[in-house]
Amino acid sequence: MQKLSKVEVVNGVAMERALIRITYEIIEKNKGIENLVLTGIKTRGVYLAHRIADRIKRLEGETIEVLELDVSYYRDDNEGRNAEKQTVSADNKTIKGRKVVIVDDVLFTGRTIRAALDAVIDLGRPDKIYLAVLIDRGNRELPIRADFVGKNIPTSREEAIQVSLKEIDETDQVNILKNI
C-alpha cells in the first residue's frame, strides 16, 4: 500500500500576491483594459478569472467580461467527440476582434490549453490571445507557454499539483502530491 506525501508550496497569502501580480501584468501588457475579455477554463480557471476581474475593477474602475470555457469537447483524449459542443456559457458571446486572456490553474502538458485555443477560435477571431496560469509545472508535450505565471513549480511526472480554492475547497493553497 502506497502512502501519499502532500507538501504545501503556495499558501493563501502567496496565491493572493500571485493573482495581484498577474492582474497588474495583464493591465500593463494591454496598456489598459479596453477590448479585453477573460475566459476561465472550467472549473478552477473560472474562479481565478473572476478574481482577476474583481482586481481589475478595483484598479481600473470598470467591469470586464468573464466567460466560462468548457474545453472537454475539444480535448484530443476525449472519446465522446460526437457530443454536442458546449464551449462557453454566457449565451455564446463572440470574441471577434477582442483581446482574450485564457485563465487556468495549472499548466502542465499543454493539451488543455490547445483545446482552449480551439474553443476560443470557434467563438470568432480574436485580436490577440494571452495565457494566464496560477502554476506552471513544466513537462510540456506541446509548444505552449504562459504569458502570465503566478508561480513556476518544476515537478516530475510522478508528482501531481493540487490547487485548492476557497470557492470550491474552502481554502486557498497549492500542494505537491507524490506517492511514497
Results as ranks from 00 to 15, higher is better:
Lys3Asp: 11
Ile64Ala: 07
Val37Lys: 01
Val106Asn: 04
Lys31Tyr: 14
Leu123Pro: 10
Leu67Lys: 02
Arg157Gln: 11
Val163Lys: 01
Pro143Cys: 05
Tyr47Lys: 15
Ile121Arg: 11
Phe148Cys: 03
Gly110Pro: 06
Arg44Leu: 04
Gln2Cys: 12
Arg51Met: 14
Asp104Ile: 05
Arg81Cys: 08
Ile26Gly: 06
Ala116Ser: 11
Asp147Arg: 04
Leu177Ile: 07
Thr109Ser: 09
Lys99Leu: 00
Ala90Tyr: 11
Glu62Lys: 15
Ile33Asn: 09
Thr171Met: 14
Ser5Gly: 09
Ile129Lys: 01
Glu159Val: 05
Thr112Phe: 00
Ser156Asp: 09
Ser89Gly: 14
Pro126Glu: 02
Ile26Gln: 04
Asp147Phe: 05
Met1Cys: 10
Arg157Met: 08
Ala119Gly: 06
Ile161Val: 06
Val133Leu: 03
Met15Gln: 02
Asn82His: 11
Glu68Thr: 13
Glu8Met: 12
Ser5Phe: 08
Val13Arg: 13
Leu117Asn: 00
Val37Gln: 05
Asn92Tyr: 11
Ile56Phe: 02
Ile180Phe: 02
Ile102Cys: 04
Lys29Arg: 15
Ala53Ile: 07
Met15His: 04
Lys96Asp: 14
Val106Asp: 01
Thr94Ala: 09
Arg55Lys: 14
Glu79Met: 12
Glu28Arg: 15
Ile52Cys: 00
Asp104Arg: 02
Val106Ile: 05
Leu69Cys: 06
Ile121Gln: 10
Glu141Cys: 07
